[in-house]
Each structure stands twice: as C-alpha cells, then as structure tokens.
Design a protein around this nucleic acid. Structure first.
Lengths: 151, 151
DNA sequence: TTAGAATAGTTCTATATAGAACTATAATAA
DNA sequence: TTATTATAGTTCTATATAGAACTATTCTAA
C-alpha cells in the first residue's frame, strides 16, 4: 500500500502553524508557534528544566535553550539555576505569561474547532489515539537511537 | 473535550524529521526533510513551477524559492524560465535526482514501517483519511484567508 | 579522595521557514 | 494603445530548528 502519513503530517504542521500564528496575532498575542508549545507544557506544570521541556515538546534541547532565551528577553519566562543541581536551569512563567493563558486558550479553542471541522467527538478521539500511538513509537525510536549512539 | 491534535502533530513532525534525516544520512543520501518533500512532488510529476510546488507541499512560496536555490546549487534540480510565461520558473529534476529515487524510496519505506508500527492496513487507511480531511480544511482556510487579504 | 564517566546546558554553524516588501512580466479595461 | 491590475518569483529580515562540539557540574568506581 502506498502510504504517505509523514508527508501529510508535514503539510498539516506547516499550515496549522501559519494559521494559528495569524489567529494569535489577530488577537493581539505576539507568540509564535514554537514559543506556544513551550508555554503549553509550562502552563500544565510550571518550573521545568530545559531537558524536561525538550522531552515534552520533542524539540531538541539546544532548540529549547535558544527559544527560552528569546522568551526570557521578552519577559515571558525566567530562568534560574537550580541550587540543588547547578547544572540544571529551571524555567518558570512570569506573571505576564500567566496573564496570557486565558486568552491563548480561547484562541487555541478556535484553532481546534477549525482543525476538527466536521469531526464527531468519536472521530476526534480515534484520531488522537492514532497520533499518540505514532508518537510513542517515534519517542521510543529516538530513545533507542540515543542509547545506541553512546558507544 | 480537551483535544490537542495540533500539539501532537507538531511533536510527530519534529521527531519524524530528525529520524528520517538520520535514516537518509545512514544510507548516504544527503537530503534534508524539506528538500525531500520537494523531490517527493517532483518525482510524481516533473517540471513544476514554484507556485505549484508551494501548493503541493504547503510550504510558502518564498520558502520553496530558497530551498530550490540550494538544491540547484547542489545539482539536484534545475530552474528555467518558461518561455511562454516569463514570470514562471520551471523546476526540473536532474539525472542525479532521478538516480536517487529508488534508494530514497527504500528509505521512505523503512520510515513508513516504523511510523505505522503496530497499525493494521485498515487503521493506516482510517488514519490517513483523517489526515486528508484535516488537510483539506486547512487548505481551504488558507485560501479563504488569501482572498480576504486582497482588500 | 580523585580520575573518568555521565549529565545539563550553551554556543557555533547551517539550513528551514515565512511575512513584508519588492521587481518583472502578463492580462485587462478604458 | 496605455494605464491599471494581477500574477510569479525573489530578496530582506527575523525566528525556528538541530547536529556537533563545547563548558560546567555531578556522579561513580577504584
């Protein structure tokens, strides 16, 4: 069978990023897609290390490091060394970031409605279960690769 | 319902790109993900304009323009002005690009097998149908936006 | 304890990506 | 025709992204 799930995923990612950033901008929220993903995980659980953010967003850790830099400069995040393990940087939300959450969620909801246009609840659930399964496979592969590389 | 399809899509995109590029590199194919997507559409139908490639990959046309530049420099593509419409650039595969296709397809197949690990054929088909529906929604939205903007 | 290994981030470099503004060409309407 | 509009790409600028190599810190085994 000729499948092209990966190609579709890339296309959807491209489009949703552009559309979502426009929606955010239209609502006065000057946050890009990559920044949004970092906020998304911090809103669920504040004070994460770079590695934890990397794991939860699937962004490379150096990417997280740099995006966090930019967000610190914009007053969205703060970064502090963990006194108990001075290798770690603990990234926290500023009050400003917290104040954005409600509005951001509203826009996310709009985006979500568009994204799942024509989908029943059951279809949404089925689709997301597929995504989670693929995600788990790829995460496992990535971890296996990292272990293999240590030789 | 709390859905996060968009977030999963971004994560999957990130991981699959890194994994696929590694697979390609391990097989001696020095082509990045974005370049691969352009080749993918050209292998299906050679001699496309920048706009056509943009539409079929969902990359912005200036992105396509720049990535094609790089691929021309690497001897993968050629770019010629269409004599019938000198605004258009016709992008074509070189013999070198054509020679890569078989090997590239083999690696794509490997990637695909990993991606759909544990999926039955029916599940793959169901999943891809969901993807196509979402893609169609987003493409329509993008087109509507572009028309609206012309005021 | 201390030398070597492991861990956590950062920096360096290069490519990917797109919005806005631009140039060149073609199509259309007066 | 010619002035206006539309189309096709490109350039400019900025951010996103990651591999490789690096620094600093902590852990571990002898």
């Amino acid at each position: 069978m000729e499948t092209k799930g990966g190609f579709y995923i890339s296309q959807i990612k491209q489009l949703q990023d552009r559309i979502f950033e426009r929606l955010l901008a239209e609502n006065g929220i000057e946050i890009s897609g990559g920044q949004g993903r970092i906020l998304f995980v911090l809103w669920k659980s504040d004070q994460l290390t770079i590695n934890e953010i990397s794991a939860q967003t699937s962004l490379a850790k150096n990417t997280v490091s740099i995006v966090v830099d930019g967000m610190v400069n914009k007053g969205i995040l703060t970064r502090q060394t963990n006194p108990r393990n001075r290798r770690q940087a603990i990234v926290s939300l500023t009050d400003y970031a917290k104040s954005l959450q409600t509005k951001y969620k509203t826009v996310s909801q709009q985006m979500n409605t568009l994204f799942y246009q024509g989908f029943s609840s059951e279809e949404q659930a089925a689709f997301e279960q597929f995504l989670v399964r693929i995600l788990e496979t790829l995460i496992k592969e990535e971890q296996t690769y990292k272990k293999t590389k240590e030789d």
